[in-house]
Amino acid sequence: MMFTTRLLEALGRVWIGLLLSFLYLPICIMALMSFNASPFYQLPFEWTTGWYADLSRNGRLLAATWNSLQIAVFTTAIATVLGTAASIALFRYEFRGKRLLQALLFPPIAIPWLITGTAMLIFFFGVGIGRGLHAILLGHVALALPYVIVVVSARLQTFAPELEEAARSLGASQWQVTTRVTLPWIMPGVIAGGLFAFAVSFDQFVVSYFLSTPGEATLPVEIYAAIRKGFTPEINAVSTIIIGISMGLMLVTARFFKFGGEK
């Protein structure tokens, strides 16, 4: 009996180990190959940082990286501010249609980006917004908003509404209540929401792809174009950098926000 339990638990750990290798092996290979001299990924392995050097001279990719960073930063700022405001309103007030407003956050998350992206392309083109970085920013903020609202609202669930009432009974205005009592409490949620927004924007490919123009594209869009032309170690190098950034970012986020819903 004891033996069977141990055996099954050991098998379970092996299973997890296999899953983790499945998840991380290709990424590690890619990272490794970005330091391999052979442009055709041939072994034996020969160390080089040449591809990164090439990357630093690739104007297109550098420009795209800069675009991606700018858009991610603006998306984070806008989505965090608007999303936090909306979360506070949804938390603080009871009104008819509140459930509908909450339900409206679901489609942007659940509808495949292919549909959202093509719909944005048609609409933005139709009303004269057109394509380009501004259109990409418009789209990214909309995609990031529901994430911010969900994360901040989760944090607000732990906030006692009496605290706002107590502050008001002491003479604080609505603005003072918000900045001095509510915001300090939900700040971890706001930061986590902001990091989510950054990740959503920085990693976004599909929507950016439909809204970009040849001159105004984000990094994933340029990478996609490069992949379709043919694989080069330069793409490995830039991919390794991106994946490093986003995983690092999510590790930081995890410190602010528990995903598991555990305790």
Binding site: A160, E162, L163, E165, A166, R168, S169, G171, S173, V181
Partner: peptide, 17 residues
């Protein structure tokens, strides 16, 4: 409420954490 100049003690105190 903020203009009424009242003081209130809440059931679970509502101290700002």
């Amino acid at each position: 409420v903020e203009k009424r100049r009242i003081g209130m003690v809440f059931q679970n105190y509502a101290l700002f954490p």
